[in-house]
Design a protein around this nucleic acid. Structure first.
Length: 424
RNA sequence: GGAGAGGUGGGAGAGUGGCUUAAUCCACCGGUUUGCUAAACCGGCGUACGGGUAACUCUGUACCGGGGGUUCGAAUCCCCCCCUCUCCGCCA
């Protein structure tokens, strides 16, 4: 959520920059500014009436105390009209504020200056790539065949006990999950991210804080009996740890990592793109979250991207980093880098990580603020997060790229975690 | 699930209708004192949204878990909801 103050001071800039996200903000911005004018004038009236009432009440109190009952009663009679006026003004103010808030949450975050123009993923900009695409044996097959061949993951069993998109990992398939989770957590810790293990279920306030609610309600599993939501990513509980918090500048940077299962309804997708591990309702992911001083958030973003790069390099996967174009970016992000790894048997790039700077967009919803040392005034902090990494597509790429007639090779960096070097 | 207690500033904790501008203590910040530290003493101490100003100062309103009500006036009284704790039951 953009702040009112920012919109007021940067009206033209907001409209201009949001064009990059293919969002026409002109109408909403006008409406917001107009509503705010109304709000301010109403607020002024309300508050002065309230002040008058407070003074009157105090006077009545004093009169009663000194036994001047008649005068007190006289003063009392004056309060009735004022009281009604305040009630009326208050309800108008409440309506305006509600309307204003409804408009404010419709505005996406402004894309950073460096965000490329574009409408779809086609227009994303490849910024770096590395690793080598392996030349596979002619008998090479996609991962959904490999997991059957080696009995690593059972989709049918998942369908039986839950439904499509809830795989059951078995044997070395299950161990590979554990190995990857531990590998990612250890690496994150080495990079200075403190581990937390959050709840997998969050309340409505948390959903709002990171921007899943109200707009993406349909993408989360909702536990209606308790009005709680299954988390779509650890970003939600971890970032919300800092909801309604005022940090000191000296607390920066706050760096957390967390493993969690993630649950996504992903309604309405079928076909080849979602086959096998390409898209699931439940999957595992290690997330990194950072809270920084506004001056340092882009530096922090670069560091996080660099961290993710070391992961795909250690896994010896062919990778590339793309900077998302305006049209492909999320509602809340100011700048996003996606990591993709090449899946040799499917012959396509798979998105395995998304690293974003949200600047103060989430902080404003979260009321996550900080104070400079010795300053009274609070400012919004910047929040960032990234996957480091999401498992399923990494597993898909590992299986496909490392398949040999003898079995599937495990990359060296992972062997201490799996304690086997081949799946056969 | 049953029974009970409770929710007040960063923390502890007083406050049962108007000197509450929320006491007091602790923590924290500044000052005095001091060779340094500590102690002592003095002062300060939250958030949000407005008004005013060149700026600092100044000033208004709201906020005692949330919402509603009673009243000239509510942290305090009434209603609804949420949450926490304790004991019991069930249970990994």
């Amino acid at each position: 959520m953009l702040t009112l103050k920012f919109i007021q001071e940067n009206k033209g800039k907001v409209v201009e920059r949001l064009k990059k996200k293919n969002f026409d903000a002109s109408g909403i911005v006008e409406k917001i500014l107009d509503l705010n004018e109304k709000r301010r004038s109403l607020l002024k009236d309300t508050e002065s009436s309230q002040a008058e009432m407070n003074a009157l009440s105090k006077e009545i109190g004093t009169l009663y105390k000194s036994g001047k009952v008649e005068e007190a009663n006289k003063a009392k009679s004056k309060t009735a009209d004022l009281k009604n006026k305040i009630k009326e003004l208050n309800s108008q103010l409440e309506n305006i504020e509600k309307e204003l808030h409804e408009e404010l949450v419709l505005l996406p975050n402004l894309p950073h200056d460096s965000v490329p123009e574009g409408k779809t993923a086609e227009d994303n900009e490849v910024v770096r790539q590395g690793g080598e695409v392996p030349t596979l044996d002619s008998s090479a097959v996609p991962h959904w065949d490999l997991i059957k061949k080696y009995d690593l993951i059972d989709f049918d069993l998942g369908i039986k006990i839950t439904g499509a998109g809830f795989p059951v990992y078995k044997g070395k398939g299950a161990k590979l999950q554990r190995a990857l989770i531990n590998f990612f957590l250890d690496e994150a810790e080495k990079a200075g991210f403190k581990e937390v293990l959050p709840p997998l279920v969050v309340n409505e306030d948390s959903g709002f804080g990171t921007g899943q609610l109200p707009d993406k309600e349909g993408q989360m599993y909702h536990l209606t009996a308790d009005n709680l939501y299954l988390i779509p990513t650890a970003e939600v509980p971890v970032t919300n740890l800092y909801r309604n918090v005022i940090l000191k500048a000296s607390d920066f940077p706050v760096k957390n990592c967390a493993y969690s299962a993630c649950f996504r309804r992903e309604a309405g997708s079928w076909g080849k793109d979602v086959r096998g591990l390409n898209r699931l309702h439940q999957f595992d992911k290690v997330e990194i979250v950072q809270i920084t001083h506004p001056d340092r958030s882009y530096q922090a973003l670069d560091e996080m991207v660099a961290h993710v790069q070391t992961l795909v390099e250690k896994l010896e996967l062919p990778w590339r980093i793309v900077k998302l174009c305006g049209g492909d970016m999320s509602f809340t992000s100011a700048l996003t880098y996606d990591f993709e790894v090449f899946s040799a048997a499917q012959e396509r790039w798979l998105e395995v990580s998304s690293v974003s700077n949200f600047e103060s967009f989430q902080s404003n919803r979260l009321k996550l603020r900080f104070k400079e040392d010795g300053q009274k005034q609070t400012q919004l902090a910047h929040t960032l997060n990234g996957s480091a990494l999401a498992l399923p597509r990494i597993v898909a790429a590992l299986l496909e790229n490392n398949q040999t007639p003898e079995g599937i090779r495990i990359p060296k960096a992972l062997v201490p975690y799996t304690r086997f070097d081949i799946i056969d």
